[in-house]
């Protein structure tokens, strides 16, 4: 499959979903999401040990995760979430909330290792261009865990991914490129249109192109 084909919504596999564009598991979590606040009051009174927010409504997806942690066992006891986004965003956050609270709760160290692919695997599949939605869930969780570390006096355990500057003039980082690729800009031209990378700092173009290929293959499979 070419990347152009992968961009095409009509090419989304239906698998068991028949007329549905998503798998049955996605559908189940979308229509019956788990671990939501039951009432507004519950949300107001919820005493979380850590809260993480990522994204913004402007970019189309935003997620907020609340976690409660057992300090002795370091397991996630409870989790709540809210998501602004499409079906796969809602379903993947719901699935993530199940993954970290099932079987007595996931250990923090393990929860920090969750990758977008792990969530997608549990959802059976997502259309490739929807991967970016589930990426946000694990980021929100990592942030919530970091906040817990900070609040519980374990600042040394906080890990925030650093970013490397690629375009020196516009201060565009590898993370920015990753974001752009996840948002569907899978060619240099498309990433440049989104970020203006390499417009002034032409010396960064070869490295940028390499990174775009790397992230494209990472999220959308080999060319």
């Amino acid at each position: 499959m070419t990347s152009a084909e992968k961009d095409n919504y009509a090419d989304v596999k239906t698998k068991t979903g028949k007329e549905w564009f998503y798998t049955d598991v996605v559908k189940k979590h979308f229509f019956n999401p788990k671990n939501l606040f039951k009432t507004e009051k519950e949300a107001e009174n919820y005493k979380a040990d850590g809260v993480g927010i990522v994204g913004s409504p402007a970019c189309g997806d935003m997620m907020k995760m609340w976690i409660k942690v057992d300090p002795k066992t370091e397991r996630i006891k409870d989790c709540k979430w809210q998501t602004f986004g499409c079906a796969s965003a809602i379903a993947s956050t719901s699935m993530l909330s199940v993954m970290i609270t099932e079987k007595g709760g996931m250990k923090l160290d393990k929860a920090l290792q969750i990758k977008p692919q792990d969530i997608v695997k549990r959802l059976v599949d997502l259309p490739p261009r929807k991967f970016h939605c589930s990426v946000l869930g694990d980021k929100a969780l990592r942030e919530a865990i970091n906040v817990y570390f900070e609040k519980s006096g374990q600042k040394d355990r906080v890990v925030r991914q650093g970013a490397k500057i690629i375009d020196k003039q516009l201060k565009i980082t590898d993370k920015d490129i990753e974001e752009a690729v996840l948002e569907g800009a899978t060619t240099f031209e498309a990433v440049q249109k989104k970020t203006k990378i390499g417009v002034n700092d032409k010396s960064c173009i070869p490295e940028a192109e390499q990174l775009i290929r790397f992230y494209r293959e990472k999220y959308f499979g080999p060319d």
Binding site: P57, M62, F84
Partner: peptide
């Protein structure tokens, strides 16, 4: 809306 963190 009950599951959305946005309030515009």
């Amino acid at each position: 809306r009950s599951m959305s963190p946005v309030n515009l």
